[in-house]
Simulated assay, not measured.
Amino acid sequence: MRPFMAEVDLNKAYRLLNVGGTTLVSAAYNGVSDIMPATWACALDLAPTKATVVVDSSHFTRPLMEKSGYFSLQLPTAAIVKETMRLGAVSKFDMPDKVEKSGAKLFTMPGFDMPLVEGCAAWMIFKILSEPHNQNQYDLFIGECVAAWSDTRVFSNGHWHFEKAPADLRTLHYVAGGHFYTIGEPLVIEGILPEED
């Protein structure tokens, strides 16, 4: 396990996606891997945690997902915004060494061969729930979370706490043309909803 990295209870893993941040999608098959940013990813179900992600058929990552049956969603932070942009600026079809040239530092977790990117706030691995119509018609993949980890400086005990961490650990929220926002300050409303654990 990496410093500040802890396993996340799969029953709380959906909360990792509730912040709506830009994701990095990675996949690997037969010794070949790729990583690409995607903003069209979101939580779909609570228990077990499921998510959707849109990955166009023109992306190098897509056939790796389809062949392996797995993908990861990671939440990059402000600390790695340049690496995130470089991973999305060019396809591995056009630049086979794009991941190496991106400057992203990679690692893997036991039992999974896909690359994960250092400097993220969270990492989730999903098994694809095959829905050929959605995948072919809408480029929409549904996955069930089989493993999840977070950087405990920003997510622990099932909750985000960005306000207690350095600004470079805030998640990225992409607009267009290299323009991002980072997540802001908390606004807590009490006394309306029941207490959550």
Rank of each mutant, 00 (worst) to 15 (best):
P3L: 07
S58E: 15
G31F: 11
L106N: 04
V25N: 06
T61I: 09
G177K: 07
H133R: 14
V81I: 07
F162D: 01
F71N: 05
G88K: 06
N157C: 11
D34A: 08
Q137H: 15
V25L: 10
P166Y: 02
L193Y: 09
Q135P: 05
T39K: 15
L44W: 13
W123P: 05
R15Y: 03
V175L: 09
F162L: 03
M109Y: 13
T23R: 09
F180K: 08
H161W: 04
E100C: 09
V175Q: 14
D197W: 10
M36F: 06
Y174N: 00
N136S: 12
K164Q: 05
T39F: 13
F180E: 11
K12E: 14
E144L: 00
A6T: 15
D168E: 14
T108V: 14
W40Y: 12
L44G: 01
V19E: 11
G31L: 10
G177I: 10
F112S: 08
S57G: 12
K105G: 02
S91Q: 08
E190W: 11
T61M: 09
N134F: 15
N136Y: 06
A148L: 04
N30M: 13
L16K: 04
F93C: 07
L129I: 14
V154I: 09
T52Q: 04
E190P: 04
A41C: 14
A148V: 04
K92W: 03
E163D: 06
Y181N: 08
I189D: 12
A43N: 11
A43H: 11
Q137A: 13
R153W: 01
K12L: 14
K101L: 13
A121C: 09
F155P: 02
K101G: 05
F93A: 11
Y138M: 10
F126D: 00
I80Q: 00
T77I: 06
G119C: 05
S156V: 10
H179V: 11
L87S: 01
A176D: 07
A6H: 15
F155Y: 07
D139V: 10
D197P: 09
P63V: 04
T77R: 00
T84C: 05
T23C: 11
V175T: 14
V8Q: 02
V53H: 03
I183H: 02
P132E: 12
Y14G: 04
L46P: 00
F112W: 15
T171H: 04
H59N: 13
A147E: 12
E83F: 02
A13W: 01
L24W: 02
A13C: 03
G21H: 03
G88L: 10
L116Y: 01
